[in-house]
Amino acid sequence: MPNRRQFIKSAAGLALMSSAPSLWASRAAAASDDELVAAAKAAGQMKVVVAIGGGVYLDTLKELFFNPFTAETGIETAFVSGSYSERIASLRAMSETNTMQWDIVATTNDSVRAPELVNYTEDLGDCTELSNVVSEGIDGSCLGNAVLFDAAGSVLAYDESAFPNGGMKSWADFWDVEAFPGPRALPNYGSPWYVLSAALLADGVEPKDVYPLDLDRAFKKLDELRPNIVAWWTSGDQSQQLFRTKEVVATMVWNGRAVKLREEGFPISIVWNGAMFDATALGVTKGAPHAIAAKALLNYLYTRPQAHAEHAKRLNYAPPNKHLGEFLDDDFESTLVTAHLPTTVKSDPAWLAENRQKLIERWTVWISG
C-alpha cells in the first residue's frame, strides 16, 4: 500500500501532467496576479537589477526563475555578477553616495545582520508584504532584512575505502585520529566560524549551544587536530581534488560537492550530523530604483515548487519552497540540507555581526602561525 508521501508525490505528478502548457506554470497565477506586480507596473517599475553570483549558477536561475518572471509579468531582470566582497564594496559606495543602481543584493544567512547589510538593505519586517514567502517558504525564510533563497550544508565527508570496518559518524570521530587515522583537510575560505563550530561539537558541545562561540575552547580543540590537517582548502574544486588524489581521508565539504564525487563513482560517505547550515539570502537595497518590482520578484521566487526541485537536481542546493520534497525522490532529497535541519548547526547572525571582525582577526593569526 502506498504511504502518504508516495500518494502526495503521485498526486503532484498527475497535477503536473494535466497542467498546461509549461512545467513551470504551476502556481504562476499567484505571482502574475500579485498585488506587488500590479503596484510595480503602476509605478513604472519595469526592471529589477540583481547583484548575484554568475556562471552556471546564474544561468540556472535565469532559466528556472528570472526568465519566467519576466515572461509572466513583463518586468525585465538584469544582473551584476561579482564576488561577495566586491558586492559589499559596491553596495557601500553606492549607498554612501546616494547613487544606488541595484534593487536586490545576494548575501548569506550568516551575513544578513552585519552592519554593511543592515545599513544598506531594506527592513522587510516579518515579510507580511511578501505573501508567498510567508505561505510557501520553509521555516526561517524571512530574515528581517532579507529572505532565504537556496541552502546548502557544510558536511563531514570521508573516503569509505579508508575505513573498511566502518567510518565516522560525528565531528568527535573526525578529531579521533587514533580510531580513524589518516590526513584531514578543513576549509579556509572566509567563514571560519564553521570550523570553529565543528571543533566545539567535537569537544562535546550540543548543536543548540554552539552559539555564542566559545573561541578559547574552539581554538584549543583545533590545536589538537592541527598536526593532522594537511590542507586548508579555499575552493570547492580543491576540496574534491583532495579526495580524488587520495591526499585526505576526510574533510568538511559542501554537500553538493560531495554528491558530485559520489556521482563520479568515488566511495564517499556524507555525515549530516553536525553539518553547518549555509544559505543564500536576497535583500532589497535601500534606495533601490525599482523597490516594488524587487519585492515582486522575491515574492515570485517562492512559487512553483517544480522549478525549485529542478534547481535542486541541477545544483544540489535546496531552495526554500516547503513543497520541494513532493517533486523529488527520497534518495535525492536525503542529499539536501533541508532533509536534515534538526541536526544542523545554524549560525547566530546577530552574534556574528558583533564579533565577526575579532573572530576573523584571531583566525588569521592562528592559521598563519
Rank of each mutant, 00 (worst) to 15 (best):
H340W: 12
P183K: 11
K41H: 05
K358L: 05
E264G: 07
Y194K: 12
L143M: 10
A39K: 06
S239N: 03
S161L: 10
E35A: 15
Q357D: 15
G137V: 00
R356T: 11
A296C: 08
Q238W: 08
K260R: 14
F149L: 15
V345N: 07
A353H: 09
I270S: 04
D237L: 13
A11E: 07
E63I: 10
S269L: 00
Y120S: 10
Y302V: 02
L341W: 05
R92Y: 12
K221A: 10
A279L: 06
D214C: 10
Q45W: 04
S235P: 10
G82C: 13
L341S: 02
A218P: 02
R244T: 06
R356I: 00
C127T: 02
L315S: 13
M100A: 10
E361Q: 15
T338N: 11
S141Y: 04
I52K: 00
G256S: 11
K220G: 05
E116Y: 09
F65H: 03
A42H: 13
P267K: 11
P183I: 10
W366P: 00
A179C: 04
I104G: 04
A114T: 10
A157R: 08
V248L: 07
V37Q: 00
F277R: 02
A51C: 08
V205W: 09
K169R: 15
R92C: 03
E72C: 06
V253K: 05
Y211Q: 05
A93I: 11
C142V: 08
N321I: 01
G137E: 02
L297D: 02
L222N: 01
W193F: 11
M252K: 04
A157G: 07
F66W: 11
N98K: 13
E122L: 08
S197Q: 13
P227N: 03
T107D: 12
G325H: 01
S10H: 14
I52M: 06
L336M: 04
S170G: 08
F69H: 04
A146Y: 01
P305D: 01
V337M: 12
L16D: 13
N228D: 09
V80A: 12
L213S: 07
M168W: 05
K9G: 07
V80T: 00
G256F: 01
Q101W: 09
A296L: 03
T97W: 04
M276Q: 06
C142K: 05
G55I: 06
A350F: 07
D110M: 03
P319Q: 01
P115Q: 02
W254N: 03
L148G: 02
V155R: 02
A29T: 14
W102A: 07
W366D: 11
V50Y: 05
S90E: 15
K295I: 03
T280W: 10
D150Y: 00
A40W: 06
E86N: 15
D59F: 01
A51H: 00
F219T: 06
S131E: 06
L201P: 01
E63Y: 10
V50L: 13
S26M: 09
L213M: 04
Y194V: 12
E247W: 12
A71G: 00
N255C: 13
D126A: 05
E122G: 07
S235Q: 08
D223I: 01
S83N: 13
L143I: 12
Y302I: 11
L341I: 12
E160C: 09
A162G: 11
A309Y: 00
P183D: 11
Y300I: 03
S269Q: 05
G265K: 04
